[in-house]
Nucleic acid binder design. Sequence first.
RNA 1: GGCGCGGUCGCCAAGUGGUAAGGCAAAGGUCUGCAAAACCUUUAUCGGCGGUUCGAUCCCGCCCCGCGCCUCCA
Length: 479
Amino acid sequence: MIQIRLHNTLTNDLQPLVPVHPGEVRIYTCGPTVYASAHIGNFRTFMFQDVLRRFLKSQGLRVLQVMNVTDVDDRIIQSAAAAGIGIREYTDKYIRAFVEDIDALHIQMPEELVRATDHIEDMVALIEKLQAKGLTYTSEGSIYFRIAKFPAYGRLSKIDVAGMQAGARVDVDQYEKDDARDFALWKAPKPGEHFWETRIGPGRPGWHIECSAMAMKYLGDTLDIHTGGVDLAFPHHENEIAQSEGATGKQFVRTWLHAEHLIIEGQKMSKSLGNFYTLRDLFARGHKPSTIRYLLLSVPYRRQLNFTEEGIVQARNSTERLRNFVTRLKTAQFPPGSNAENEKRIEKAENDFDAGLADDINTAMALAAVFDLVRDINTSMDRGTFLQQDAPRAVAAMEKFDDVLALLADDDDERLAKLGFSPQKARMAAAEVEALIEERQAAKKRRDFKRADEIRQKFADSGILLEDAKDGSVRWKYK
RNA sequence: GGCGCGGUCGCCAAGUGGUAAGGCAAAGGUCUGCAAAACCUUUAUCGGCGGUUCGAUCCCGCCCCGCGCCUCCA
């Protein structure tokens, strides 16, 4: 099997992936905080994780991925209170929307999608473990992690903790801490606030403890891979390490993978700049799920992705090229026989595709391998050297690529409909299309080009694309 | 100030110590009744200045520029 190498933030270099449990890769993914709809930047990160897990699976590895949903934090508590509903009810709708969104993008559901509020007991138990080891202290009912007791702190983010201490911009929380670097494991309830009554007192979990508790519960003390956006490396992931390794004494994560951010038209995405998009904003503007998927996965994850209007157009056209190619493979007529040259060419593409992804999930390289094949096979078809037996083989290769890319299925309208977006134009029924095509063919045959062109115009008005093939047959599709 | 990512064809974006993948766009062409669509072909010397080297876009140093993190954040 091909050696997969990944860029580990912890060591800042490329390392071979060697799963703790042979044949199975266990991944923890920092999921969304469900106080609002996820934005396109979130999906950049989730898209990376999807490509990663799909690739691992395509290599015959089992994947056990856990993604958390943070359904309790300050914003959620405040927003829910403002709406006059419980936090569970408040977050339910955003979780539902999130699941719909990732489905629309063909992002696979992790094996476990877990909510923080379902794991309060696990967090309490973990905090108790840390207490027993003397790594915590209590102040005004809140429990903090004492970083001074964990010398490895800062290794992941290469943060100079001493400098942090001296720095001016320390976290001025409402809580009392011994040291500005310390972080809350458990927060005492404020008046009127939602809280849990537990063995360690009333309150609610700090943000970081949920990930440590849930990751280890489902994946064991040492995970193969932990992913998230670059912004999470510090302090979130750093704190996860402190909590987990503080409790177990074992290495928490072997490989840390951090996805770079997405920016919009060269600028940081922010609500104040008015360039803050949810997925549905983009769908409402007429962009297809597959276009967004292509755009998000086409740029390797460790590179900032500049999300632009022009980029969307390019992504849409590129996706079309791929789909057109497969359509041609499936519908065109080829001379009988098979050609070993084509087989060789296809195998090369398969190898290049895997090699690209094995190299730290280099999607640009993988896509290049696919497009190289598209061009070469098209050429072979044009030259008549592509034969009948070659077609299913080429289709199989494209489908194999699509196990990872998930771009070929022409189901955009369906997926949009699920989210309540209807196609702009009423669709002409397929039977009607076929009938009109036949009529047009007949008109052409008797050289009644006026009538033929009328029909063609009618199709254009209905958003239907005609393709007159070389052999006289006609292919068509909805735009 | 510290840490990190990046500056390669009009746009997006790989890559390698020995003279640059791929996609989009553009131009030319094939096909066509004419078109469209589809397909083919063509198009860069790699931010700047030094250094190492027989040879650097790729190694080292300095500089310039963009973005991010260092406080909640994918």
